[in-house]
Design a protein around this nucleic acid. Structure first.
Lengths: 197, 197
DNA sequence: ATTTTGTTAGACAAAAATGTTAATAAAAAT
DNA sequence: ATTTTTATTAACATTTTTGTCTAACAAAAT
């Protein structure tokens, strides 16, 4: 079974990911993707048959990678607080590289998201939520529906990065300055979540 | 100055707003919008010339309405804490009706957003931020860059609603149950922001 | 060497979406 | 009342985007 593997398939996926999730060109046409990758548009059909299937492949890859890294955090043998800190670090890093990834998920949930719904209510998340509840009992974090805790965590992490393209222009802060603000958030979020009264 | 004003123009805008920002059909074609409004597709060109201009009009209307209501909150003669509570109430209500509005702003920032950037760094926001700084001096809220305070506020409000379409499916919560969670957040967010240690 | 398999490219076809023009109907103005 | 303006529609044209088909090419296998 020969496989020449010229790397074109992966190149196309990487380029699409860059265009869609990093640069936010969510309506990128097959032509634009092909051009950016420096390949003929037909190659794209050869490997993925259709635009939709290419996009689906790109998205699936991205999600799988991220959720795997997050699962690792959640299952690691550390304290709840450390786990949370790790989750924040992993997630922020990913979001900084691909700020439009989540936005894409939301806008395309009707087209692509449906298939992805199954594999997200996973064991690691459940176990992490369980631990959160335990911590609430112990009093190290405020008592609330653990779903709120998760929502708060993801809100504080995601939203500023989702809005990054906008905020940079809005607040007239430079790329560097914005970077500094985001870096501060890692500590700030921990403070907000674990601040006990 | 004649103006028959059959209400068609407004009908088209309202319908487009519903489709785009409430139902999340961000790629709605002119045909789909026309059908949903029950008018001929040409009417849409008659009133707005092009699809882009229709969308721009819809978006501008929506943003202007919301930012006006928020400005009122920020300039009202009440305590900082009350102001914040009002902002949350106004914003949550709007977001619940049109959860895809912000998502649209982000994805289309390159196409439409550029014009809107000017009028957002407004006086009311500056004055609100100033008050936040004062509160930090007084010690009623934690000390931080006031931009962080604003980011936290909007994160905790927006994100769960942006993600609502996804979360409902993800956590397998009913519409009603999700509604309850969101209603709880109004109080919860205030607690997080104004919790002093 | 030639057959086979995998890969790339060009030309063409089809579909989907937008935009234009001209004709018709309805209302307001004179 | 008839003329003019505004609103709406139907038919047509254009553009954009996707998808297919076939041929050319390269590398490995026989």
């Amino acid at each position: 079974m020969p496989l020449k593997n010229t790397g074109t398939e992966q190149l196309i996926k990487d380029t699409a990911k860059q265009l869609l999730f990093a640069e936010g060109k969510l309506h990128a046409t097959t032509q634009e993707i092909a051009d950016a990758a420096g390949v003929n548009r037909t190659a794209l059909h050869y490997y993925f048959r259709s635009r939709d299937q290419l996009i689906a492949a790109v998205f699936q890859d991205a999600m799988q990678g991220l959720s795997q890294r997050l699962d690792e955090c959640m299952l690691s043998e550390t304290s709840f607080k450390e786990k949370t800190a790790n989750i924040i670090a992993v997630f922020l890093k990913d979001m900084m590289a691909f700020p439009y990834q989540e936005t894409f998920l939301i806008t395309e949930i009707n087209t692509f998201g449906k298939k992805l719904i199954t594999n997200i209510q996973s064991e690691p998340v459940k176990s992490y939520l369980k631990e959160a509840t335990d911590e609430m009992e112990k009093g190290s974090i405020d008592k609330m529906d653990p779903i709120h805790f998760l929502m708060n965590l993801f809100s504080l992490m995601s939203y500023p990065l989702i809005m990054a393209p906008l905020y940079k222009k809005l607040f007239r802060v430079s790329e560097k300055e914005f970077q500094r603000l985001i870096n501060e958030r890692e500590r700030l979020i921990m403070n907000m979540l674990f601040k006990s009264c």
